[in-house]
Structures are given as structure tokens and as C-alpha cells.
């Protein structure tokens, strides 16, 4: 193959400035989409711009976005975790069980996080220890984790949580800013730094682009993938604490189908489902877009299932449009030449 090269001896660091690159990036497209939806919504409903309404609306995406940050890293590394919603269910069940046994809030939180980590460790061991494909493993653990909740709860529910436990899903840090929103912001910053600014994040990209070459470059591929599954389990545990606290009850069907919404959020955020590329700012924007669409439709009394059509279309369109556009512009360029 012919390659794009120059024969100059001097090789500059960069050709295009980071700013120039950013203008043509996926994230800037998402910003435009987000702004468009924001403006449409504020015209469509007078209630949209109310700060308290907006704050309420943030619950639409914060819990899912917590998981999406970790999921983004997993997908960039070339794996996937479809068991996250089931981890929420099992974690919530464990906390409900403990609450019934009389444990107080700090212990419940510890149990929640530990259960999430434990589930993540099981996924990680199966994928990295036994070398199994993550898509199948996590379809299996998805049934296993949620199935365990069903065994424990059957058609019952845990509904008695200590009063102080309500803070995570219903409390406010300051004015309209809920605890969940604050957690979302903190998690976005932590994961943004982790992916884009650290050795660990670089290794994640390298693994996603070429796991063999990464291994041959001294990257501890297995260890990093294991940590990624641990993180995803941990974030699912965190999301479970928030969701359980917000709902005040646990049923085995809690968060059913969330894994697909989380994956949609990540892909909409510009993460390549095949691994190797993607960014946290993209995922943040995707979370905001999905949250605003859900909220806007809610204000217009559009049922939730119709919103899901929109999300599904959005998912396909945002990926298809750049491809179609690229093909058309190439065709135009050729006919012009």
C-alpha cells in the first residue's frame, strides 16, 4: 500500500493544532446536538428551564452515567460488560437483606460497594483468568446475578431502609444540586483524568487497538482488563446505592434492561464499540443528551417507550450519518475533479 508520507527529515510533533482537531471531532457534533435539543425543549415547554425541574430531570441519567464511565473504558479496551444491570439488582438485594437484618447506612454502603466489586471480580476472572469472550461471559453472569436476586426475593421486595440511607438518592448537596448530580460530576472528572491523563488510560487505548502488541510492549493486559471489570462492578454498586436509595425498595427486576441503555450512552458518546477509541467528555455529553430527550418528552407527555424509539434511532443515526456523509462527500469530490 502507498502511504501518506513526506520525505523531509524533520518531523514536526503535530500538523493540526488540538483546537482545529476538536472542531471536527465527535464531541463538537454532540455539543451541537445537545444545544439543539436544549433550545427545542425550552421552546416546546415553559417548564423546561425551571432549575428544580432540570434538577429532577438529572436523575434520568446520573445513575446510568456512573456506570457508563467505567463501561466506556471497558469498551475502549475491546471488551464489554452486559451484566451491569444485574449487578445493580444483586447489590440492591444484598443491601436490602442487610437492612432487614438491622445494619445501618454506613454498613449498607460498604456492603453495596463490596457486592459490586465482587461481581466485577467474577467477570474479570472469567474474562482474563480463563480467557473467555466477555460478551458471552457477561450474558451468563447477567442471568446468574439477577437470577440470584430472584432466588433470594422471588416475587417479594425489600422496602425497609434506614431513614439516613435516603440521602444518596434523594438528598441535595447545595440548592438544586443533588448528591447524585455531584457524584456524576466527580466521577466524570475522575474517569476523564484516568482515561486521558494517566499511564493506565494510555494502556487501555493501546489494548483496545492491538492487545497483542500492547502485551509485547510490556503492558500487563490481563491485569488492566481485570481492573476495568472491577471498576465497572464498583460503579454498578455505586449506581445501585443511589437507585435503591431513590426508590426506597428493592425488587429483583430493578434496573431491568439498563445494560443496553448504558451501552447506548457509551456508543452515542463516540466510543467505538469495537474498541480503541472514545472519550469521557463524549460520554458526558451523551448522558446529557439522553437525559434531556427523556425529560423533554416527559414534559410533552410522550410515553417512555416512544422515547426509547427515539434513543434507538439516535443510536443508529449518529453512527450512520457520518458514514453516509463521508461517502457522499467523496462522491462529490470525485465528480467535481
Amino acid at each position: 500500500m502507498i502511504s501518506v508520507e513526506q520525505t523531509a527529515r524533520y518531523v514536526p510533533d503535530r500538523l493540526k493544532s488540538p483546537a482545529a482537531r476538536w472542531v471536527k471531532s465527535w464531541e463538537s457534533l454532540l455539543i451541537v446536538v445537545a444545544l439543539a435539543i436544549f433550545i427545542t425543549n425550552s421552546f416546546a415547554s415553559p417548564y423546561f428551564l425551571d432549575p428544580w425541574n432540570l434538577s429532577d430531570a438529572s436523575f434520568n441519567f446520573t445513575e446510568k452515567a456512573l456506570i457508563a464511565f467505567a463501561m466506556a473504558l471497558v469498551i475502549i479496551s475491546g471488551e464489554i460488560d452486559l451484566s451491569v444491570a444485574a449487578i445493580i439488582a444483586l447489590t440492591s438485594t444484598a443491601m436490602g437483606y442487610a437492612a432487614q437484618a438491622g445494619f445501618d447506612t454506613p454498613m449498607l454502603v460498604a456492603i453495596g460497594l463490596a457486592t459490586g466489586l465482587g461481581c466485577g471480580a467474577i467477570n474479570g476472572l472469567l474474562v482474563t483468568g480463563l480467557g473467555l469472550p466477555s460478551i458471552v461471559v457477561t450474558i451468563g453472569t447477567m442471568s446468574l446475578f439477577r437470577g440470584t436476586s430472584f432466588i433470594i426475593l422471588g416475587d417479594q421486595a425489600f422496602t425497609s431502609y434506614p431513614a439516613s440511607f435516603a440521602y444518596f438518592g434523594q438528598g441535595y448537596v447545595w440548592w438544586v444540586f443533588s448528591f447524585e448530580l455531584a457524584l456524576f460530576v466527580v466521577a466524570a472528572i475522575v474517569y476523564g483524568l484516568l482515561l486521558h491523563k494517566t499511564n493506565f488510560g494510555r494502556a487501555v487505548y493501546a489494548i483496545g487497538n492491538n492487545a497483542t502488541a500492547a502485551l509485547f510492549s510490556g503492558i500487563r493486559v490481563g491485569r488492566i482488563k481485570f481492573i476495568l471489570f472491577l471498576l465497572t462492578g464498583l460503579m454498578a454498586g455505586m449506581a445501585s446505592i443511589c437507585l435503591t436509595s431513590r426508590l426506597g425498595s428493592t425488587r429483583p427486576s430493578i434496573a431491568l434492561g439498563w445494560e443496553l441503555e448504558v451501552v447506548t450512552m457509551v456508543v452515542l458518546g463516540g466510543v467505538n464499540i469495537l474498541g480503541g477509541s472514545g472519550s469521557i467528555p463524549g460520554v458526558v455529553l451523551a448522558a446529557l443528551i439522553m437525559g434531556m430527550v427523556t425529560f423533554g418528552f416527559g414534559l410533552l407527555n410522550v410515553p417512555g417507550i416512544v422515547m426509547s424509539i427515539f434513543i434507538g434511532l439516535l443510536l443508529i443515526l449518529v453512527i450512520a450519518l457520518p458514514i453516509v456523509y463521508g461517502r457522499l462527500s467523496r462522491r462529490w469530490a470525485r465528480s467535481a475533479a
Binding site: V4, E5, Q6, V11, P12, R14
Partner: peptide, 12 residues
Amino acid sequence: RAASLDQDVGTL
């Protein structure tokens, strides 16, 4: 021989 150091290695 490359155009810049932030060029994808696959284009070489």
C-alpha cells in the same frame, strides 16, 4: 519519514 509525530502509525 513521517508527516508528523501524531500521525497514526498505520498510515506509515
